[in-house]
Amino acid sequence: MLAAVEVTSNWYLILSAALFAVGAMGLLIRRNPLVMFMCVELMLNAVNLSFVAFGDRLGDIAGQVSVFFVLVVAAAEVVVGLALVVAISRRRATTTADDLSVLRG
């Protein structure tokens, strides 16, 4: 039965959408900024998968090239984000996102 089924690019895309949604949810429910960054990584990975799957569907290499740039951006974001965490943890005992609420109103 499975033999009749073909894996189309949409499968990947739906998986990608699911991964993106999981990442987004994680960012909303986790308090540890490091885990929140990881969730952003999940979201970016989901986009990567979309790019590659679209490229596959279109028969186009540009999708794969785009992934390179996403990778660079992800790396740069992580570096800066982690530096921020380091800087803040120098000054505060706890580093959860909920503690950052001096500024409000």
Partner: peptide, 14 residues
């Protein structure tokens, strides 16, 4: 609505 909690803001974006 401006609670100062970054996760609330993220909910706004979402």
């Amino acid at each position: 609505t401006q609670t100062g909690l970054v996760r609330n803001y993220a909910v706004g974006v979402a």
